[in-house]
Structure formats: structure tokens, C-alpha cells
Design a binder for these strands. Sequence first.
DNA 1: ATGACTGATTGCAAATTGCAACCAGTTGTA
DNA 2: TACAACTGGTTGCAATTTGCAATCAGTCAT
Lengths: 171, 171
Amino acid sequence: MSTAAHRSGCPINLSLEVFGDRWSLIILRDMMFGGRRHFRELLTRSEEGISSNILADRLKMLLDEGMITKTDDPSHKQKAVYSLTEKSIALVPIFAHLGAWGRRYLPVSEELSIRAQLLEEGGPALWDQFMAELRELHLGEPAKREGPTVAEQLQAAYEKVLARQAAKTRR
Amino acid sequence: MSTAAHRSGCPINLSLEVFGDRWSLIILRDMMFGGRRHFRELLTRSEEGISSNILADRLKMLLDEGMITKTDDPSHKQKAVYSLTEKSIALVPIFAHLGAWGRRYLPVSEELSIRAQLLEEGGPALWDQFMAELRELHLGEPAKREGPTVAEQLQAAYEKVLARQAAKTRR
DNA sequence: ATGACTGATTGCAAATTGCAACCAGTTGTA
DNA sequence: TACAACTGGTTGCAATTTGCAATCAGTCAT
């Protein structure tokens, strides 16, 4: 494998050859915005219900493509930790635009689009901050923060929506 | 068909359900940046070599999804003209980011990435101008331009690279 | 020692993809 | 008026990919 010739040298085509399928970006999204780092987390806490063979296959591919790395988890001899690389962290702006586009044109659910809304409103400055946090978390870069992390802000907003929805249902 | 339930209400997932495959964005790219408007143009001038059944299938899907429209070509009773919609024109920033990312991390060819480079350097202001031109061309919006179009600039840069490459080979 | 948890693998049916041939109606040209 | 080229596709078929469910061997806490 890996001998497969490329369809063309167009940057858009080559990008699609890496993550132009129904699952690769879902996995990266869950690692980026959902904090998933282990196989089992990605498998069972997947909103879309990925199956284990597909997940294993895509993780292998993303590894080959240099989009993620895999290291041992000291706490368990069988446990692996998957980390993002600079190459995948660089996709943050694309995720932000994808989220914004989906929110505008597709039947999104409120609770699953609040993060996209915040990311859209925050703009490139917020994306950069989030990317710095990811580098810190996945690449071990030194932190230089002030106040709550972007990840915390996104999570807080998500939980606030969930709480409001629960209250509304209860009424 | 069209009764298929969505995997989740996440904007990124829903976006991928629309164009998360190996061909949809290639077709839209060729319509946007390659000026293709007819079936045969998309089929035979495709850099990646799409086959006619896949092209027909994707055009039908993009039509269903409201990403393109189809009208009769007055010049030929069998000829159809495919046009972009606002929904697909709104993908321009995503194409720009995809191109920039591919250029940075993948083995792109010079001639096929010069457009991506210009688009990246031009930034959001250039993207907006290009989107306005697409609206003009595909949605019939009134023009308000000054100087050469973005499409012309991209094309000129592409041809310049081709000419330089030809000269280099000849030497 | 036992049962839950780890990252997967396996078998199989269904759906999708890709290739090549083909098609009927339309048009320009000899 | 014949003919070839061009129009947007369709059809048949093999190969690949997907998705589901069951399974697996090693690890770990109790």
C-alpha cells in the first residue's frame, strides 16, 4: 500500500484524498472538540455511531498520513493515546468554516451547533487561541494562557444549552 | 430516497453528509474555478478523470441538495447548463482554506496550486470579490466591477506558470 | 478467579465505485 | 439527404468499501 498514485496534484483534490470521506473529519472533530484520545472513547461516545472496524481503519490511515500520532498510555499496557499533529491542528479554520456553513444551510440541532456558533463569532483570533491550546495539549508546547480556555468556553456553552433544553422539556 | 435520516444534527457531520466524498467538491471546484457548466465539460476536462455514471449521480445529488441548478441551453435542445447556487458559492472560503492547507502539507503540483496560492494571499477580501463574480455569473446578479475579474487573474497566473514550465522544458 | 475493559479483528451481506460499452436525440457539415 | 460528431446521460458487471454483529486475546481491579 501507499503506492497508490494521486489522481492529480491539485491541492483540493489531494486534501480530499486524505479526508474526503464520511468519517475521517468526524474522528478528528471528536479529538479536537470532544477531547477524545482513546479508541474506546471515539467508538462509544461517537454521536454518529462509527463502527469499530471503520474506526480502526481510519485511525491507521490518519496515522499513515501524519494527521495523528499514537503513543502508549502509562496507566494501562493495552491503552493507546491518540494525539493530533500540527498538520491536523491546521484544519481548525476549515472546521470553523464547515460549522458555520452547516449552521447556515443545514438542519442542525441547537445543542450540537452552539460550539460552531461560538467558533464562528470568535473568528480567526479565537481559532488561533484554540489551535495554541491544542498544540499545548497534543504536542506538549508550553502554555501561555489567561482566563478560561477556548475548550472550556465551548464546553460551558454546550452544557448551558443542554440545561436550558432540559428545563424547557420539564415545563 | 431523501428519506434517509441524518446521522446527527452536528453542522460538521451534516456538511459531510452533503459533500463528504471524493467527488462532490471536485465537481463544484471545476464549476467554480474551471468555468465548467456542461456535463461534457465536467466529464472530459476533469483533471482527476471522473466517470460518467458517478458524474451523473453526483449532479443529481447536488441538484437535490440545492447546491446547483440545471437549466436548458438555448443553443442546443439536449444541452443543459449547470449553475452554482448561493449555498455552494458560500463554500468559497472553505475551498480557499482547503487549497491553502493542501499546498502546505501535501505534494501539490506547481501549476495546479498557483490559483490556491493567489486565493490564499488575497485573503477574505479577494474571496468576497470572487463570490460576487460567481453570483453575477451563476445567479444573474448585476455586476459592479473595476479592473480584471478574480477569475481572469487566476487564469492568467495559471497560464503564466504553464508558459514558464514549457520554456523550462524546452531548454 | 472472575468479570469488565483494552484496542482491535473477522465474517458476511449490502451498498458504492469504477470501467467500458452503449444509447437515443440533436446538430453541423458534406 | 446522409453522416459523423456531439448532447446528457444509462446499463451491465466486477471490484472495492461499508456497516453490523460477533468475537478475541491481553490487561486490570476486585
